[in-house]
Amino acid sequence: MSVEQVPEARTPGQTHRTGYDDETRARLAADAAQIRARYPQERSALLPMLHLVQSEDGYVSPRGIAFCAAELGLTTAEVSAVATFYTQYKRHPNGTYTVGVCTNTLCAIMGGDAIWEELSDHLGVGHDETTDDGAITLERVECNAACDYAPVVMVNWEFFDNQTPDSAVALADELQAGRPVTPTRGADSVCTFKEMSRVLAGFGDGRADEGVGAGEPTLRGIALARQEGWEAPPFPGGAEAGKPVAERPVASEASTTTPARGTRTTKAVGGSHAPKPGAEQSSAERPATTAGDVSPEQQQTKQQSDDAKES
């Protein structure tokens, strides 16, 4: 979701108006068949197929649009209508790396605007423009769900957390020099735009086990809980129902002085005294009394008003 502006300079690239050669077309058609097989209705394959086209041509090329249309029995206008709706589908050849600076409010204020200014000046390109060497397409991107790591820069949609203008420039220099860069949270190195597009088309690259499970901010809550000895209420039946006892950390001193977990609850049921599901007095056998058990008409009315606000 990059911010739209009309680009002033575009990198001259292949226009790909001539169609794929037989070998390429056969290979893409085999991929497309695999994609279609994932869905009950084949039109659902269009979004992944557009990623597939980008994995071949580095953007949604005219021949790629024609290919998708032919494969799915659509017109090229129908395919173009979809391709132009989504910002990840590029309408002109993309650089090897998309460098996206988050300039949504939170990141912008934490320093994203400064990073954007620095990078844009350093690279000499604006939003959705590509450096002359074809290495970097620079974008202003919207919130990428890493606000606790602000300011954030994405390279081919891998996370580079807690950036500064200097670190972002150094990152761009490495990319332009053709040296591998390592995201904060992601694979061991950033792949190319085409390689990334192939993964998004649903073809794994075997790199899921690379990188960390979480960064420090992600773990701050659980680290604090370990330190303080805070736990969620135990499952009824203890280790039988939940995790092995040995896995539980030893509660620290603090836990003995801490009130019960979730103390706002006024009618907390002691964990070990709670009935087992399916047993007598368990929730599965209780009479219809909650809001979920009211009449269908009331439920429908409630859902209409609530769903109207749902996002």
Binding site: D209, E228, R264
Partner: peptide, 21 residues
Amino acid sequence: MATTLTPVLTDIWDKDRSWTL
């Protein structure tokens, strides 16, 4: 402090290779 954290989903996030089956 009145309320404490209740790690349920986060409870395995700090384990080794937490994302694996």
